[in-house]
Computed example of a mutant assay.
Amino acid sequence: MTSPDSDGLLAEQLLRLTRRVHRIQKRHLEHRDLGITPAQSRLLRTLAHWGSPPRMADLAERLEVVPRAVTTLVDGLEASGKVRRVPDPANRRVIRIELTDDGRGALRELRAARRSAAEEILAPLTEHQRAALGELLDTLIDGTPARSC
């Protein structure tokens, strides 16, 4: 059984790792000079996983932000040509957001930057340690007990 102090230490380590991941990803993104903020990056990734273009309200719900925040993100991405607003074919009063070709290109660059950052972060680990870490992270994400490592 773990003590409250060891749980606090683990929580602190996770927070420090998260901050390190963000710093490294940011550095890799800056080298690619995409002009995309982390929040815009998250919106682009969310759009990429949607089957048909979502409404702004759907994006706000999925991103767990207020609709006004999505409007600001979409405004910036639309100005740079990465997304566009399109009317819903079934209800022209509803606006949907879709990726443009430039947006898909930016996503490829974002994925490459994330891969580079992951390689840098995981470099000290062996393949066995990476597999064990993956299982542990899955357990923490899913909230289900881990298989033995």
Rank of each mutant, 00 (worst) to 15 (best):
R68M: 11
I97H: 02
R96H: 10
E61I: 11
V94S: 10
I121V: 15
N91Q: 04
I95K: 07
T72W: 11
G51R: 08
G81R: 00
G51Q: 09
R85K: 09
G81W: 02
R104H: 03
T100S: 02
P89A: 02
V94Q: 12
E98I: 10
R62N: 10
G105S: 08
P54F: 11
D58G: 10
I95R: 08
L63D: 07
L122Q: 11
R111V: 13
S80G: 11
A106M: 08
L59K: 05
V94T: 13
R108M: 12
A106W: 05
S116D: 15
E78Y: 09
G103D: 07
L77E: 00
L77C: 00
V94E: 14
A106F: 01
E120T: 10
A113Q: 11
P54Y: 02
A79N: 13
N91D: 14
G76T: 05
D102W: 09
G103S: 08
G105F: 07
I95C: 03
V83W: 01
G81I: 00
A106P: 10
R93T: 09
S80T: 14
E78G: 07
E119T: 01
L73D: 02
T100K: 03
R115N: 06
R93P: 00
K82P: 02
K82Q: 13
A57G: 06
A113P: 08
T71N: 05
E119Q: 06
R62T: 12
R84N: 00
R114L: 15
R115Y: 10
G76W: 11
E120W: 06
L59V: 04
E64T: 10
A57K: 05
R85N: 02
R108W: 10
V74Q: 03
A57I: 08
L107T: 12
V83N: 01
R68P: 03
L63N: 06
I121S: 13
E61P: 01
R111F: 04
R108G: 02
A113F: 10
A106I: 06
V65K: 05
R96N: 08
R62M: 09
S80M: 11
R93N: 09
A117T: 06
R108L: 13
A117E: 07
P89Q: 03
D101P: 00
R115H: 12
L77A: 03
R114C: 12
L99G: 13
R85I: 01
R84C: 04
P67Q: 04
A106E: 06
L99M: 14
R111G: 04
T71W: 06
G81P: 01
A113K: 07
R96K: 14
A57H: 01
